[in-house]
Design a protein around this nucleic acid. Structure first.
Lengths: 194, 194
DNA sequence: CTCGCCATGTAATGAGTTACATGATTTA
DNA sequence: TAAATCATGTAACTCATTACATGGCGAG
């Protein structure tokens, strides 16, 4: 469901499936991953439904491409989605479940390994987002509060990404410290068994 | 994929599909929603694969139930998942896309409405998590740092939930303020057109 | 001429939702 | 006795991933 609207939204200007996939990989995938084949199928479906129109045109580089654009109906559908309820029930991420169940391994070392790996990944993601931000801030001295209208919402979402990634990285660091503290306590208890 | 492991994880003690659904609704759904019918199908699949064993037994209240428990193979599969890589690529939440595309409506009032609704929902979620925390803290004076081993990981995940919900609510409040500031600036500009 | 990127698609399979069907037991 | 809750499942459909097939074009 959401993929349809995300594609519709990205098609502010006409694009091909391949180009849309690149946009996914360059950011959207952080909150909604999609495979190329699924994008193609969904574009076909939306065209059949009358929300998109397509035409074939030559590419700068490589073979011909099929370029999609919104129809009036498609634009209306997108707008209805936007003025509707926030989609808050479809969130999913599974590493939290891994953390929860790690308890069963009975060894805090495994938890520590897991959290370190997670920390590594989260830090990389945060770095990428911060790089985007710096680039943007360098280009527009008005960043972030005097940005022109057409960049304001993009900044809001970047900020949400930054905040979320930041808090999770901090949680990771804090959790690692707490695990280490527990391990230290356990060692002390072993050295000096009551 | 993840649903399989989540069910496997929840089956620390034997449970029926119906009981598992209740556990989902009481928390797990915040990061991995699942319908009852999907739970039943997945339990059957896991049983066929040899990761679970099932038997029918009478219920305290209501008709007979089919109770599932892990096999040795299932336990092994769960443990492999836990010592493997953090599942960080399958995150999805779509309201961030709505915020991003709201720009196209061209009216900050729509954004304000959207953010208020979102704020409302996020606040309710945070309240629920905080209630859980207070209840827990009241019951165990050792909360959160001297908790017994079998509660430590649960506390870590609760903390991640609290932190995430908290930062997003704060982002929402901040964004609402920023939108209002922009609206105020616009009004001023309209009243005194240069 | 080969490798990597550009580009689109189908097929098979798996995962997930919605709707439907059934029926027991408990509580008001 | 009616409504709520307990309990399990199937069917139809939608959504998503993985694997496979095909081929053009440009750089080295």
């Amino acid at each position: 469901m959401s993929l349809e609207y995300i594609l519709l939204g990205l098609l502010r200007t006409p694009k091909s499936g391949y180009e849309l996939k690149a946009e996914f990989d360059a950011g959207v995938a952080n909150f909604w991953p999609a495979e190329l084949s699924q994008i193609y199928v969904t574009l076909k479906r939306l065209t059949k439904r009358g929300w998109l129109r397509d035409h074939v045109e030559p590419s700068d580089k490589g073979p011909e491409k099929r370029v999609y654009q919104r129809t009036a109906t498609g634009r209306r559908a997108l707008f209805e989605w936007l003025v509707g309820e926030p989609q808050i029930g479809d969130e999913r991420f599974s590493y939290i479940a891994q953390v929860y169940f790690l308890e069963e391994l009975g060894t805090l070392e495994a938890t520590l390994t897991f959290l370190s790996r997670l920390r590594e990944r989260l830090a990389r993601r945060l770095d990428a987002l911060r790089a985007t931000e710096h680039l943007w801030a360098k280009g527009s001295p008005d960043y972030p509060d005097q940005l022109p209208h057409d960049e304001f919402h993009a900044q809001l979402t970047l900020q949400l990404g930054l905040d979320t990634a930041g808090v999770r990285l901090a949680w990771c660091d804090d959790s690692i410290r707490r695990v280490q503290a527990r391990l230290a306590r356990k060692e002390k208890a072993n050295a000096r068994p009551s």
